[in-house]
Amino acid sequence: MKATFQVPSITCNHCVDKIEKFVGEIEGVSFIDVSVEKKSVVVEFDAPATQDLIKEALLDAGQEVV
């Protein structure tokens, strides 16, 4: 499964690193693409990962998800 999250609070590479760390810890996540320019995060994943778990990880990383 693939999901795109709009994350307007992404401003720098530190944000990218933190997002990759938090989302990458979720079992089932196979790909993460964070774009500072587009302020988006694209995640490819399989169970047990879910969109809700990914959104929670983004929030835990200090990001706003819309």
Results as ranks from 00 to 15, higher is better:
residue 1 M to H: 12
residue 1 M to A: 07
residue 1 M to E: 06
residue 1 M to F: 10
residue 1 M to C: 14
residue 2 K to R: 13
residue 3 A to D: 05
residue 3 A to T: 07
residue 3 A to I: 14
residue 3 A to M: 10
residue 4 T to F: 15
residue 4 T to D: 04
residue 4 T to H: 11
residue 5 F to V: 00
residue 5 F to I: 01
residue 5 F to M: 00
residue 5 F to A: 00
residue 5 F to H: 00
residue 5 F to Y: 07
residue 6 Q to N: 11
residue 6 Q to E: 08
residue 6 Q to M: 12
residue 6 Q to A: 09
residue 6 Q to I: 14
residue 6 Q to S: 12
residue 7 V to Y: 02
residue 7 V to D: 00
residue 7 V to R: 00
residue 7 V to N: 03
residue 7 V to M: 06
residue 7 V to G: 02
residue 7 V to T: 05
residue 8 P to F: 09
residue 8 P to Y: 10
residue 8 P to M: 10
residue 8 P to E: 08
residue 8 P to H: 08
residue 8 P to D: 07
residue 8 P to A: 10
residue 8 P to G: 08
residue 9 S to F: 13
residue 9 S to W: 15
residue 9 S to P: 04
residue 9 S to L: 07
residue 10 I to T: 04
residue 10 I to M: 08
residue 10 I to H: 02
residue 10 I to C: 13
residue 10 I to W: 10
residue 10 I to V: 07
residue 10 I to N: 01
residue 10 I to G: 04
residue 10 I to R: 00
residue 11 T to C: 14
residue 11 T to V: 12
residue 11 T to Q: 09
residue 11 T to W: 15
residue 11 T to D: 08
residue 11 T to R: 13
residue 11 T to Y: 15
residue 11 T to E: 08
residue 12 C to T: 11
residue 12 C to L: 08
residue 12 C to Q: 09
residue 12 C to H: 10
residue 12 C to D: 13
residue 13 N to L: 12
residue 13 N to Q: 15
residue 13 N to I: 15
residue 14 H to R: 15
residue 14 H to M: 15
residue 14 H to D: 14
residue 14 H to L: 15
residue 14 H to P: 05
residue 14 H to T: 15
residue 15 C to M: 12
residue 15 C to G: 08
residue 15 C to R: 06
residue 16 V to Y: 05
residue 16 V to S: 05
residue 16 V to K: 13
residue 16 V to N: 04
residue 16 V to C: 07
residue 16 V to H: 04
residue 16 V to E: 03
residue 16 V to D: 03
residue 16 V to M: 06
residue 17 D to A: 14
residue 17 D to G: 08
residue 17 D to P: 06
residue 17 D to I: 14
residue 17 D to R: 14
residue 17 D to T: 14
residue 18 K to H: 06
residue 18 K to N: 06
residue 18 K to G: 03
residue 18 K to W: 08
residue 19 I to W: 03
residue 19 I to H: 00
residue 19 I to N: 00
residue 19 I to Y: 01
residue 19 I to S: 01
residue 19 I to T: 01
residue 20 E to L: 15
residue 20 E to P: 00
residue 21 K to T: 07
residue 21 K to H: 08
residue 21 K to M: 08
residue 21 K to Q: 08
residue 22 F to Q: 06
residue 22 F to M: 08
residue 22 F to K: 08
residue 22 F to P: 01
residue 22 F to H: 10
residue 23 V to E: 00
residue 23 V to P: 01
residue 23 V to K: 03
residue 23 V to D: 01
residue 23 V to L: 12
residue 23 V to M: 05
residue 23 V to Y: 03
residue 24 G to E: 04
residue 24 G to Y: 13
residue 24 G to C: 09
residue 24 G to P: 00
residue 24 G to T: 07
residue 25 E to F: 08
residue 25 E to H: 09
residue 25 E to S: 13
residue 26 I to T: 02
residue 26 I to N: 03
residue 26 I to Q: 02
residue 26 I to Y: 02
residue 26 I to P: 02
residue 26 I to V: 13
residue 27 E to S: 08
residue 27 E to L: 10
residue 27 E to T: 10
residue 27 E to K: 10
residue 28 G to W: 03
residue 28 G to E: 00
residue 28 G to L: 02
residue 28 G to D: 02
residue 28 G to P: 01
residue 28 G to T: 03
residue 29 V to N: 01
residue 29 V to C: 04
residue 29 V to W: 04
residue 29 V to H: 01
residue 29 V to T: 02
residue 30 S to M: 14
residue 30 S to P: 01
residue 31 F to A: 10
residue 31 F to M: 08
residue 31 F to G: 07
residue 31 F to V: 07
residue 31 F to L: 08
residue 31 F to S: 10
residue 31 F to R: 13
residue 32 I to G: 01
residue 32 I to P: 00
residue 32 I to R: 02
residue 32 I to F: 03
residue 32 I to K: 02
residue 32 I to Y: 02
residue 32 I to C: 04
residue 33 D to M: 13
residue 33 D to Q: 12
residue 33 D to F: 15
residue 34 V to L: 04
residue 34 V to A: 06
residue 34 V to Y: 05
residue 36 V to S: 03
residue 36 V to H: 04
residue 36 V to C: 15
residue 36 V to M: 09
residue 36 V to Y: 06
residue 36 V to Q: 05
residue 36 V to W: 08
residue 37 E to V: 10
residue 37 E to H: 09
residue 38 K to T: 11
residue 38 K to I: 05
residue 39 K to I: 05
residue 39 K to M: 09
residue 39 K to T: 05
residue 39 K to S: 07
residue 39 K to R: 11
residue 39 K to H: 08
residue 39 K to A: 06
residue 39 K to F: 07
residue 40 S to C: 12
residue 40 S to N: 07
residue 40 S to G: 04
residue 40 S to P: 02
residue 41 V to Q: 01
residue 41 V to F: 04
residue 41 V to G: 02
residue 41 V to A: 02
residue 41 V to W: 04
residue 42 V to G: 04
residue 42 V to W: 09
residue 42 V to H: 10
residue 42 V to M: 11
residue 42 V to I: 12
residue 42 V to A: 07
residue 43 V to R: 01
residue 43 V to N: 01
residue 43 V to A: 03
residue 43 V to H: 00
residue 43 V to P: 00
residue 43 V to C: 03
residue 44 E to R: 12
residue 44 E to W: 15
residue 44 E to N: 09
residue 44 E to M: 14
residue 44 E to V: 14
residue 44 E to L: 15
residue 45 F to D: 00
residue 45 F to L: 01
residue 45 F to I: 01
residue 45 F to K: 00
residue 46 D to Y: 13
residue 46 D to A: 13
residue 46 D to T: 14
residue 46 D to M: 13
residue 46 D to V: 14
residue 47 A to V: 08
residue 47 A to S: 09
residue 47 A to F: 14
residue 47 A to L: 12
residue 47 A to W: 14
residue 47 A to C: 09
residue 48 P to M: 02
residue 48 P to T: 00
residue 48 P to H: 01
residue 48 P to S: 01
residue 48 P to D: 01
residue 48 P to G: 01
residue 49 A to F: 02
residue 49 A to K: 03
residue 49 A to D: 01
residue 49 A to Y: 04
residue 49 A to L: 01
residue 50 T to Y: 04
residue 50 T to C: 04
residue 50 T to P: 02
residue 50 T to E: 01
residue 50 T to G: 02
residue 51 Q to T: 13
residue 51 Q to P: 12
residue 51 Q to Y: 15
residue 51 Q to H: 14
residue 52 D to K: 13
residue 52 D to A: 13
residue 52 D to H: 11
residue 52 D to I: 09
residue 52 D to S: 11
residue 52 D to L: 11
residue 53 L to C: 05
residue 54 I to T: 02
residue 54 I to A: 01
residue 54 I to R: 01
residue 54 I to M: 02
residue 54 I to Q: 02
residue 54 I to Y: 03
residue 55 K to S: 05
residue 55 K to G: 04
residue 55 K to I: 14
residue 55 K to L: 14
residue 56 E to I: 12
residue 56 E to D: 10
residue 56 E to P: 01
residue 56 E to L: 14
residue 56 E to K: 15
residue 57 A to K: 07
residue 57 A to I: 04
residue 58 L to P: 03
residue 58 L to F: 04
residue 58 L to D: 01
residue 59 L to A: 08
residue 59 L to H: 08
residue 59 L to P: 00
residue 59 L to G: 06
residue 60 D to H: 13
residue 60 D to L: 15
residue 60 D to V: 10
residue 60 D to Q: 14
residue 60 D to G: 09
residue 60 D to K: 15
residue 61 A to Y: 05
residue 61 A to Q: 03
residue 61 A to L: 07
residue 61 A to W: 07
residue 62 G to L: 14
residue 62 G to E: 06
residue 62 G to S: 06
residue 63 Q to L: 14
residue 63 Q to H: 15
residue 63 Q to W: 14
residue 63 Q to E: 05
residue 63 Q to T: 06
residue 63 Q to G: 05
residue 63 Q to D: 04
residue 64 E to P: 06
residue 64 E to I: 15
residue 65 V to P: 07
residue 65 V to Y: 07
residue 65 V to L: 07
residue 65 V to G: 05
residue 66 V to L: 10
residue 66 V to D: 07
residue 66 V to E: 08
